[in-house]
Design a protein around this nucleic acid. Structure first.
Lengths: 348, 348
DNA sequence: CTGAAAGCGCTTACAG
DNA sequence: CTGAAAGCGCTTACAG
């Protein structure tokens, strides 16, 4: 309709309108330094570009070896806060450093993971942030072979080549929780946590920490299950039947939800009847009951650190590939009673 | 290290290895029909491609006017289930139809919305799915002017040009809820809902439906507030103070969460003491208390229908631009008592 | 059946 | 200071 004006004007259109060459127009638009263009011409080009509503075609630009300033982040699920926390952290730094981040949801399906990796590689993305399923690890080899930078998040895995990864130390988080309770005088500490293989480090850490602190294994029972309502209930019941612990470490946020609800229903008051430390960052930790002490898992930091590392890589860093482990932090709230003797803690 | 093998082999590399021309290699790889290539040559090319691990550079392909098979979806928040439901619905169809969907989170910030639109336009995406803030509507003009297809989701707005949009009828949903309760014999029905301007249609619909059914406005009070814990509590208290309604329509899922919890704490039993219909799809509707009857909002369908329409557009559909309104559906569960006389409902 | 050549929209030495 | 020309990796008439 609007005669003459191309829908997507090219540099050529701008150059013609400004009465100059494509090369000069390019020099002005991409603002190359060291290329002196007379102020007059520069203005004319700028005007022409504005007039036409010119937007450079990044596709064409990329063909000349320029980076696309585009990275892809693969996550298993969109509904899961854990991944969203990582995404938000990563996005913050990509935005700051001028990269466009694309989020792709794989549903933990290796086939989908492969599909995305294929497409995105073909789309010439500059790099990958990968929160990928264990089985999906195979497809990472493809990225590796293409020489495209990537960072693995949250779940590093075995590979016969070194690669960048960022994770937190789940076992360490549990150790912190146990240590905190120990410091407050607790000697009989239970653990309710996930039974899935990805979480083996958490329960192993519980056992070894307990042992290291010189506590009796009998006094520190483990209850394992899946993060469902029924299993949560079952584990609480078992824990209560024991009746011997003064404190409890909950090793998973979803399980925590069910456990805490069930404890309340059972009339158990925290921390009077039992002290509790959660591993994870459930929204309700601050709001429910007395406020729950938690070992917070640094998902946003995982995203941030991973993103920073990926960009450095893309921009030429030759730092040795390695696994980065991020520390967890204690957020003390009101779910742990200090039962040490002679500390006067009761007075407070 | 691996001498000779280029990291990212090009069609040229494939052609050389196969001992043929780039053009022929291209014909084989992109499987153009009508181009007869001898079976022998075709095999050699295919082998060479496999050998090199060749992946076509979609960037270059796109430069020849081919579509990128890539669309971008802008959503305000990643944490909000509503948007994730739309995303998941949309992604399903994009995947089926061979498009790659990129998710971008704008945080409802018009500046970020503009930034993304700019970048993605420059990246030559084929189309946009827009769940955008009211203020962001301005930037849509840029997409429109570029002639790039787009579909607006969930929140259509005023514009001086026609455009495609997909939404559900929030007012209609409330009318359904009221109608359902009316059908079960309720004549005094309260409404607790959001006060924000985007939800004006819901409360207006409540009032007009009540009027249409011949109920007295006095018997059908409205309680409006923000979706916070305190406001939820306040509204429940006001509703209870009234003590005259047999039924309640809750017009927002977050508000519903607080209202339902508060009602339970107040010792109110549903549906014995009050029948309840929720507008929305909170996860707990099925699990909490007796199971809550709800008017379900079709967010995934919004995504699906929008995606279908967008692809049709991209692939050349010249169907007139228009606003599509998707119906909501009743999910009857156990939170509504049938109080009609002589129906024998009580026996059931 | 096969391949030389032009061209997509840009950038970048390089020569005026 | 400015512009003609080559080239990025493909596709596509078109001529053999």
């Amino acid at each position: 309709m609007e005669s003459g004006r191309p829908l997507r004007p090219t540099l050529r259109d701008v150059a013609v309108l400004a009465g100059t060459s494509i090369a000069t127009a390019s020099n002005v638009i991409s603002g190359r330094q060291g290329k002196y263009v007379s102020e007059k011409l520069r203005q004319k080009v700028l005007e022409a570009a504005a007039d036409l509503g010119y937007t450079p075609n990044l596709l064409a630009r990329s063909m000349k070896g320029k980076s696309r300033k585009m990275i892809a982040m693969l996550v298993p699920e969109l509904y899961n806060t854990i991944y969203m926390r990582m995404v938000v952290g990563a996005e913050r730094v990509f935005n700051d450093r001028g990269y466009l981040m694309l989020i792709c949801s794989t549903m933990g399906d290796p086939a989908r993971e492969e599909g995305y990796i294929q497409s995105l590689l073909a789309q010439q993305v500059d790099g990958f942030m990968l929160a990928i399923s264990p089985k999906g690890a195979v497809h990472v080899g493809k990225i590796e072979r293409m020489g495209v930078p990537y960072v693995v998040l949250d779940r590093p895995y075995e590979a016969d080549y070194p690669y960048d990864s960022v994770a937190f130390d789940g076992g360490g988080a549990v150790a912190m929780a146990v240590g905190h309770l120990y410091g407050k005088g607790h000697r009989r500490i239970g653990f309710i946590g996930p039974v899935m293989p990805e979480f083996a480090d958490r329960r192993r850490s519980f056992s070894s920490t307990v042992e290291k602190l010189g506590l009796k294994a009998n006094d520190c029972p483990l209850y394992l299950g899946y993060p469902t309502e029924e299993e949560g209930e079952r584990m609480v019941l078992e824990f209560l039947a024991g009746r011997s612990c003064t404190a409890l470490v909950i090793g998973h946020h979803i399980i925590g939800e069910h456990v805490v609800r069930r404890m309340r229903e059972a009339g158990l008051e925290v921390p009077r009847d039992a002290s509790v430390v959660i591993v994870g960052n459930p929204v309700w930790a601050e709001m429910a009951g007395p406020g729950f002490t938690a070992v917070e898992l640094p998902h946003p930091e995982l995203g941030e650190i991973g993103a920073g590392r990926l960009i450095d890589r893309i921009e030429g860093s030759t730092d040795a590939k390695r696994a980065i482990l991020v520390d967890c932090t204690m957020a003390e709230r009101a779910s742990v009673a200090d039962i040490r003797e002679g500390t006067g803690a009761d007075v407070v």
